[in-house]
Design a protein around this nucleic acid. Structure first.
Length: 494
RNA sequence: GGCGCGUUCGUCUAGUGGCUUAGGACGCCGCCCUCUCAAGGCGGAGAUCACGGGUUCGAAUCCCGUACGCGCUACCA
């Protein structure tokens, strides 16, 4: 097995969306496969008909596509080991279940749900291990045959031998030992003819030549059942690697109740796939150095299962936001332009005509000041429309008695020139300040307020330049009226 | 209840017996830069390494126990 090319799989059950924990599992499988020149396989575990959800698989596939975790074999792309939907492999599971029965490693059982429930409750009451009592094993062969022929519903159960020890050798946790006396005779084939996860995953992993089973820690407890199955079939076991869980802030398993768990929720909120992947990769793994910012390629090169650690990790948004900003800033402006265009279409400025050049200037100016693409709009609406309001706090702090007069002078200076460049605004402002023998802040702050309505933003010369000469003049005029009315005691004189 | 896994700053983590007065990152605070806000640079607060016993000249690191947390305990995956 060591010499074979690694084959790993991500095997989600289609629950309607891709869980963020599922993304992490998928990512680690993907990184491992790409790092080792192996194959990454997607298999849909849709064996629970009661939980069938329309469109769930499609959604899952789309999300995987969005994050860019491309698989070598699976739905839509096919492969030599299909079908990759478990619901299309029923006859295979049936065949292997029968093989087990012949070997005496599994058996038919006909117990009613009522009996099972009663048994369970009795065991609970007596503080015993809750498991099947192997009653069906006492049935004579003829009776079994008869029941089946008469169409009585049945299940197939795993015949777990008592008093044995099963060792699960886990790459991350080492050897974990289980006593078979606490392992239940797991149902392998349900009465509807569908297999349970335990049978299906073992059969498929074997048939699909999976070399490493990389999955969440919640599976560790049922792994002895899987080990037993491999042994009963006489198959070589894959290498197991059980990943630590992703946790809520209160340390319980990451769940809906305490925030967003669907990858698409994060997509919708404007998180970049690069940031999400980077962040989720760091939840349970690190490169061993002090790098925190990773591209997918860097992750592929540096990822090893050996550096996955054991404890669960709280999914904490603050670092994700930071990473989002970091990845945003690392993107070329041309790419951000496309993203901003998309964002604009969804905004109230959808009908606004803006040239690429102007958007590029906005992007350049706002890049260090935003964490999300949409903030190229929301954090600087003044680039898209004239301010309708002026920040009260800023008026109080920056709008002095002499501000209107100074702004008037500044406005006239601006009006005198054409084809203004960034430097021209700088010169105008500095010269005027010098001329009047005042600090340039006396001009800068009021004009920023007048032109943007805000006290914060990009450098003022740049700000004026991007807004443009005519618009600057208009806005100054408008501010002179507006702010005067807000503060009637201020005059334009002096 | 049983079984299993885990436990280093608020959070993500480094650390595999001496290099550790426990390092980094996010967040927080301060300073610098500066026309504002960011970004960036510098610095700070923040972890008696869950607790208790051992082993050892020496333990976050090895062993045992306890506590706590989590997972599993379905004809779910």
């Amino acid at each position: 097995m060591i010499n074979e090319t690694p084959r790993v799989r991500f095997a989600p059950s289609p629950t309607g969306y891709l869980h963020i924990g599922g993304l992490r599992t998928a990512l680690y499988n993907y990184l491992f496969a790409r790092n080792t020149n192996g194959k990454f396989i997607l298999r849909i575990e849709d064996t629970d008909r009661k939980r069938y959800i329309e469109g769930a698989v499609e959604n899952l596939l789309n999300t995987l596509k969005w994050v860019g975790l491309d698989y070598d074999e699976g739905p839509e792309v096919g492969g030599d080991y299909g079908p990759y939907y478990q619901s299309k492999r029923l006859d295979i599971y049936k065949k292997y279940a029968e093989e087990l029965i012949e070997k005496g490693k599994a058996y038919y059982a006909f117990d009613t749900p009522e009996r099972l429930k009663q048994l369970h409750e009795e065991q609970l009451k007596k503080n015993e291990q809750t498991k099947y009592d192997k009653f069906a094993l006492t049935l004579p062969e003829e009776v079994i045959k008869q029941k089946i022929e008469s169409g009585e519903p049945y299940v197939v159960r795993l015949n777990v031998p008592p008093d044995k020890s099963v060792i699960v050798d886990d790459l991350i946790r080492g050897k974990v030992e289980f006593d078979t006396n606490i392992v239940d005779d797991q149902i392998l084939i349900k009465s509807d003819g569908f297999p349970t996860y335990h049978l299906a995953n073992v059969v498929d992993d074997h048939l699909m030549k999976i070399t490493h089973v990389i999955r969440g820690e919640e599976w560790l407890s049922s792994t002895p059942k899987h080990v037993l199955l491999y042994d009963f079939f006489g198959w070589e076991k894959p290498i197991f690697a059980h990943l630590p869980l992703l946790l809520n802030p209160d340390k319980t398993k990451l769940s809906k109740r305490q925030g967003d768990v669907a990858v698409e929720d994060y997509k919708d909120k404007g998180y970049l796939k690069e940031a999400l992947i980077n962040f989720v990769a760091l939840l349970g793994w690190n490169a061993g150095d002090e790098q925190e910012f990773f591209t997918l390629d860097e992750l592929i090169h540096k990822f090893t299962l050996e550096r996955v650690h054991k404890a669960g990790a709280v999914f904490n948004l603050e670092k994700l936001v930071w990473l989002n900003a970091e990845h945003l800033r690392s993107k070329p402006n041309a790419e951000l332009l496309q993203m901003l265009r998309e964002e604009l279409k969804k905004s109230k400025y959808a009908d606004l005509k803006i040239e690429d050049n102007k958007l590029l200037l906005i992007i350049e100016a706002m890049k260090p000041r935003v964490e999300f693409v949409k903030e190229f709009i929301t954090k600087c609406p003044y680039f898209y429309e004239a301010p309708t309001e002026y920040d009260e706090k800023v008026i109080k702090k920056r709008w002095k008695e002499d501000s209107p007069g100074l702004l008037l002078k500044l406005r006239d200076k601006i009006a005198q020139l054409d084809d203004l460049k960034k430097e021209d605004y700088e010169n105008i402002l500095n010269n005027l300040a010098e001329e009047l023998n005042i600090g340039k802040g006396k001009l800068i702050h009021p004009v920023r307020l007048a032109v943007s309505g805000s006290g914060t933003g990009p450098g003022i010369y740049n700000l004026l330049y991007i807004i443009g000469k005519d618009e600057c003049i208009n806005r100054i005029n408008r501010a002179l009226e507006k702010i005067k009315t807000t503060n009637p005691d201020l005059t334009e004189e002096n």
